[in-house]
């Protein structure tokens, strides 16, 4: 495909793309590749520093930190993928509909969207967690809804532009119903900008998911999550500082890869951007 051929030209894209693929592979195979049971409590082996048996040491319950970091990768991938899908599935139909419909419906929807965009994602997410509850599902709903306004905006913008196209006007004139027009004629225009936006917001999802868990409002123990592991590690920072190494590094590498891949995907699909850099 043309996209991959052009993507391959970017060295940064290749390296961090590979890293991201690796992280997703780790997430998918987490249950088989953990060196120890990430949930197994071993009170005789609490707070053991990194060693050949436990590369990243063990935590306050004697659980193997490396295994927990690996399982947490899966949790993060699961949560952020679901949240991203949730945001797309709520935002895009709303954006397409109000963009197509126009009039006061659009005016009110966009006014509300603009108002929501004033607030930082983490704030919206926290407020939604109050309703949805501090659970894994809560995080998915919270982050998904909090990011939906971004997708509403993009979907509406593209729909507005597509509506002006001759073939769409012709379809309207021919009496096609709006569901048909939205799906057949407008959706094909929307997929590319939505994919770009989704890749660009992936790191935002990761950062906010782990922030919620750090605050205790997200994934709950004993399920491991990087933010949540860091929160627990903070209490033992004086005695066992090595506990922060694994989750912190995994988190930064994931976000870094996602960020760079997002940039390269955007540049690949929209080469004009690169010239300006």
């Amino acid at each position: 495909m043309d996209f991959f051929r052009r993507y391959k030209r970017d060295k940064v894209g290749i390296v961090f793309g590979a890293l991201l693929v690796l992280l997703y592979a780790v997430a998918l195979t987490a249950h088989w590749i953990t060196p120890a049971d990430p949930m197994a409590v071993n009170l005789r082996e609490v707070f053991s520093p990194p060693s050949s048996a436990h590369w990243l040491g063990t935590d306050q319950f004697g659980r193997d930190v490396l295994s927990r970091v690996i399982l947490a990768t899966q949790v993060t991938v699961r949560v952020t993928s679901a949240a991203c899908l949730f945001a797309v599935l709520t935002g895009v139909p709303i954006g397409m509909f109000v963009g197509y419909r126009g009039g006061w419906v659009e005016a009110i929807a966009m006014r509300l969207t603009d108002m929501l965009l004033i607030f930082p994602i983490i704030m919206l997410a926290i407020v939604i967690v109050v309703v949805a509850g501090p659970t894994e599902t809560g995080v998915v709903v919270a982050l998904g809804l909090a990011q939906a306004p971004t997708f509403i905006r993009i979907a509406r913008g593209v729909t507005l532009a597509a509506k002006e196209e001759l073939y769409v006007e012709a379809a309207i004139a021919a009496g096609s119903g709006w569901p048909h027009i939205l799906v057949r004629h407008i959706w094909p225009n929307i997929s590319t900008p939505i994919i770009v936006q989704a890749t660009l917001t992936l790191p935002v999802f990761v950062l906010n998911a782990s922030a919620l868990s750090y605050l205790g409002l997200g994934v709950q123990p004993p399920t491991p999550e990087w933010g949540q592991m860091l929160n627990e590690a903070k209490d033992h920072l004086i005695t066992s500082p090595y506990l922060i190494v694994g989750p912190a590094a995994a988190l930064v590498v994931f976000v870094l890869s996602a960020n760079l891949v997002g940039d390269v995907v955007q540049e690949t699909l929209n080469p004009k951007l690169k010239k300006r850099k």
Binding site: A211, Y214, G227, K234, V252, V255, L260
Partner: peptide, 18 residues
């Protein structure tokens, strides 16, 4: 600055405290 935007506040904070 790229590294900066990829490091969440709670990671920077823990490193700074340590």
């Amino acid at each position: 600055s790229l590294l900066g935007i990829c490091t969440p506040v709670f990671v920077t904070g823990l490193l700074a405290i340590y």
